Amino acid sequence: MTFSIVARQGDAYGVAVASKFLAVGALVPEAGPHGAVATQAWGRVAYRRELLDALADGQSPEAALERCTAADAGSATRQLGVVGAEGAATFTGAEAPDWAGGRSGEADDLAWAIQGNILAGEQVVEQMERTWLERGDLPFEARLVAALRAGDEAGGDRRGRQSAAVVAHQPGRGYDETGVLADLRVDDHPDPVTELTRLLDLHELYFGLPGEPIPLTGPLAEEVRRRLAEQGRTHQDLRAALTDWAGEVNLEGRLLPDSIDARVLQMLRERPGG
């Protein structure tokens, strides 16, 4: 009833998952500084902490997975994906509902485990893997969601759609350097992967790094001054007016000295009255 990608890129770990199941993000995925895990089919939530602790202790994903499933009387009903510093592993129990299966691999600084059950067919995991490998142009968390979308478009969960989630961790990144690159859930929606993509775009807007700076001079500076005035920011100092407005719309993290970020400019132009 669920399909997921668990992956590493450099020192970033994450999971993207979708299902015809309420709030899949509350049960299936977890990521931290030493690895990432997805537990699904007849998921056992305790696997998340057990496997991440094993990875933190230096066990390989294969060894950690084998040890946990061997001790679990219900392992035939489980499906798991595990990625750590030493590779990736996927497991599908013999009693996981058809179509069920997965694939894992490593290449350069990447490792991945892709798995699903009650799927439209094997093409779901095939398309997810292909997209994951092809979309190296994207930020890590967006790359995960792109792979998830590919699986959804290939048929996904054959019962339909309901929820999706992405969690990603990278040391020193995220808000206040917590390491949380993304932690987003769509709990109940007719098109959850599309909605998750929208939320991730907003997350990048508010918490992502500024893009290429555009010099705030000449006609552009006058345009920005006028648009800020239409928003009620009439300070004579342009930087003070922009800082005041950015603080209200939660874009202060994208401010640049003597320049403006392209997405900040776009949002200013799209605001009513701007």
Rank of each mutant, 00 (worst) to 15 (best):
A7K: 08
A7H: 08
A7G: 04
R8I: 03
R8Q: 11
Q9S: 11
Q9C: 08
Q9V: 02
Q9P: 00
G10E: 07
G10Q: 02
D11V: 12
D11S: 14
D11L: 10
D11M: 10
A12H: 06
A12R: 08
A12C: 07
A12G: 11
A12Y: 06
A12W: 06
Y13N: 00
Y13T: 07
Y13G: 02
Y13V: 03
Y13M: 03
G14W: 15
A16C: 11
A16S: 14
A16Q: 05
A16D: 02
V17L: 01
V17W: 07
V17T: 15
V17N: 05
A18M: 09
A18E: 02
A18T: 04
A18P: 06
A18G: 01
F21T: 04
L22D: 05
L22V: 13
L22S: 07
L22P: 00
L22Q: 02
L22M: 14
L22I: 14
A23H: 06
A23L: 03
V24C: 12
V24L: 04
V24Y: 11
G25Q: 05
G25A: 02
G25P: 01
A26H: 12
A26E: 14
L27V: 15
L27E: 14
V28C: 14
V28F: 00
V28G: 00
V28K: 04
V28N: 03
P29V: 13
P29G: 04
P29M: 08
E30T: 10
E30H: 13
E30D: 14
A31Y: 09
A31H: 09
G32I: 05
G32F: 05
G32C: 04
P33Q: 13
P33R: 14
P33I: 07
H34R: 11
H34F: 10
H34Q: 07
H34W: 08
H34D: 12
H34M: 04
G35S: 10
G35V: 08
A36C: 02
A36Q: 05
V37H: 04
V37N: 00
V37R: 10
V37P: 07
A38Q: 04
T39M: 05
T39E: 03
Q40T: 01
Q40I: 03
A41K: 03
W42E: 06
W42C: 09
W42F: 15
G43C: 04
G43P: 01
G43D: 02
G43R: 06
G43A: 14
G43M: 09
G43F: 13
G43V: 06
R44K: 13
R44T: 05
V45K: 05
V45A: 12
V45I: 12
A46F: 10
Y47I: 01
Y47G: 06
R48M: 04
R48S: 00
R49E: 14
